[in-house]
């Protein structure tokens, strides 16, 4: 009696397993076969459409581009790179001021970095995230990234004016183009 019961329940289980475990695979493969044949016979020369829309048209900033271009204190991105070694991923940003202006009153600060993984690296006043006093007209900063991640956007602010009350601040959102990623041979 018990034996019979377990026998019939095994039979039912096998039935379900065969339907799910063999039926779905057979279905998937038949669909693939059908689609392959379909494409070969009926769509031999697909129109070259839609291929141009593969890249979003918002052009990002890259090396050689100018920040704050509409200001009198425009700065040039002269280095933009991710240096990779086995131990760490490092983001390198170098800026040069374009015109000689009253440099002693200029401060540029990277407020935050948006990464590919949507993580945000926030700035913090006491660390290297701040470009101060573009006196030799050049500044350079490095950030350790989470391993494997790449910045896609920067938020940069420019402060002008020595006294706190007269500070004049502009912020710019800087979407980045594909940053060169190179092996760090240090």
């Amino acid at each position: 009696m018990n034996e019979e019961q377990s026998n019939s329940s095994t039979k039912r289980l096998v039935k379900i397993l065969v339907i799910v475990g063999i039926g779905i695979p057979v279905l998937v493969e038949l669909m693939t076969l059908f689609n392959l044949i379909n494409v070969q016979i009926f769509e031999d020369e697909e129109d070259v459409n839609g291929q141009d829309s593969n890249v979003a048209d918002v052009r990002g900033f890259g090396e050689g581009d100018t920040l704050f271009a509409d200001q009198e204190t425009a700065v040039l991105i002269d280095q933009l790179r991710v240096k990779v070694s086995t131990q760490e991923w490092r983001f390198v940003l170098g800026l040069t001021s374009v015109d000689s202006i009253s440099q002693d009153k200029l401060q540029i600060q990277v407020d935050s970095l948006i990464l590919q993984s949507d993580k945000v690296l926030m700035s913090n006043d006491s660390n290297i995230w701040k470009f101060q006093q573009l006196v030799p007209a050049q500044a350079y900063g490095e950030w350790i990234l989470p391993n494997g991640d790449i910045p896609t956007k920067l938020f940069i602010s420019m402060y002008q004016g020595a006294a706190a009350d007269s500070t004049y601040q502009i912020s710019q959102e800087v979407p980045l183009e594909k940053i060169p990623v190179r092996y760090n041979q240090e």
């Binding site: 070259v48 291929q51 593969n54 990779v84 070694s85 086995t86 991923w89 494997g148």
Partner: peptide, 16 residues
């Protein structure tokens, strides 16, 4: 044909 093609590095070459 006139179009763009992507080039992929398809052999593992390091962390990036």
């Amino acid at each position: 044909e006139v179009r763009e093609y992507g080039i992929v590095c398809n052999e593992y070459c390091g962390p990036a």
